[in-house]
Design a protein around this nucleic acid. Structure first.
Lengths: 228, 228
DNA sequence: GATACTATTATGTCTGCACATAATAGCGCC
DNA sequence: GGCGCTATTATGTGCAGACATAATAGTATC
């Protein structure tokens, strides 16, 4: 059938591309498009909804649908467990738990998680290896309240994976930036002090409580990549 | 009504979280869930489809629906035009076209775009400013075949925005990584040579032809950020 | 002129049904 | 056993109709 919702999505996209419907302009109503394409309104709705989700269209009740004026491209970024990331490169994964203590988190960490100052957290340092070479250096602050008793042994299953398997589907935020390697990072990763490294910082919250703040220092040259 | 598709999505998520349905396990069929929740199968379908899109469920015809074994978190990343990025920080935007020539692209650029070697491209260097200070240094290779005649003046409207407005909705890929500032970047951005900078590289293709390859060097401390 | 109510309109969602499609399981046959 | 056909099954998508909801435009009132 030539009028599935994907066909309609493609046709709408085409009209936008050729400036049939210019940036910022209103497009016909669902009912009008359904009549034109000879399909049900629900089918048009599905197509337009997808395009709105991709940032191509903006929809508002009663007003109607318009082409996004300044289209904000949206890319979806996969955040795999580090083991998978390494495996996907065809390398063998390994990790070493370098440190595990309980301590007062630094103020920026506590405040980003929205935790009361003075609450002690678990601090973990883990080095993830690809083919035996440093791949990611992980510094993690973990809310002890979210762990079961007895606490899992993070030397056997890395905190990275334990959390994904046991506290998955929560909210959080991610940030990427570049920073020069400090002395500790340089020593652990085997690079010169001050080398440019990609850093990932993540904060995650459960239904009520903050769960963890993690800073991943990636090996030199590491790329975070995705298609649009 | 307490049984909209969002309610069903929430309930399914809850059952996964509390290990009612463990990681990797099959869940009931759409028909069974529709009967349980007292709604139409289409409503269950909508809820499960959304969760599959978020990477929480995996669905296959005939087999059924299972909880993802290793849930790959998916983050959506907004890629705004640089002007918007600056405006969102409450700063005033400006830019300067530093260079515009036609030249043979370096081999890595040509090969990443899938262009025949020996094809000349337009090369642009643009410095984007926030409150008059360097914000992003943009080096762009542009396929001349995609430009109209006469070519637009990129000193008036930056290539960044011209492309979004005229060749939007195309495919491409993005990568982030850290690199030390080379001499040119250091001079333009006003930082020390070797400083750790975040680099964004983007390749974009139109329906047939490659369009552009761009390398964005961000000011020190720049963070690419998103919520999950 | 400003404010409060009301009608209208386009999208958002749901229902119940139908058929399409992909993948699996089972069967018969050699 | 191994091969190929067929039946079954769960999801994917379609339709027509209905009501819900949000936002706007218009109207009435003060």
């Amino acid at each position: 059938m030539p009028n599935g919702w994907e066909d309609i999505r493609a046709e709408v996209l085409r009209r936008i591309r050729v400036r049939d419907w210019p940036l910022g302009a209103m497009i016909p109503t669902e009912a009008a498009l359904a009549a034109e394409f000879g399909c049900a309104r629900a089918t048009v709705n599905r197509a337009l909804r997808e395009l709105a989700g991709a940032g191509v269209l903006e929809r508002r009740r009663k007003s109607g649908t318009r082409v996004a004026a300044l289209p904000v491209r949206k890319a979806t970024l996969d955040i795999p467990v580090i083991r998978q990331d390494v495996a996907a490169r065809g390398q063998t994964y390994g990790f070493r738990l370098l440190e595990q203590t309980t301590a007062l988190p630094p103020v920026p960490v506590a405040s980003r998680l929205g935790l009361a100052a003075g609450l002690r957290m678990i601090y973990l340092e883990t080095l993830h290896l690809a083919d035996g070479l440093p791949f990611v250096f992980e510094k993690r602050w973990l809310n002890p309240a979210v762990l079961p008793h007895p606490a899992p042994d993070f030397a056997i299953l890395s905190a990275n994976e334990w959390l994904v398997a046991h506290l998955s589907y929560v909210t959080g935020d991610i940030a990427f930036f570049a920073a020069p390697a400090d002395d500790r990072e340089a020593a652990v990763m085997g690079v010169a002090s001050g080398a440019a490294l990609l850093i990932t910082e993540r904060s995650t919250w459960g239904p009520q409580d903050p769960i963890t703040f993690v800073r991943l220092t990636h090996a030199p040259g590491h790329r975070v990549q995705t298609v649009v």
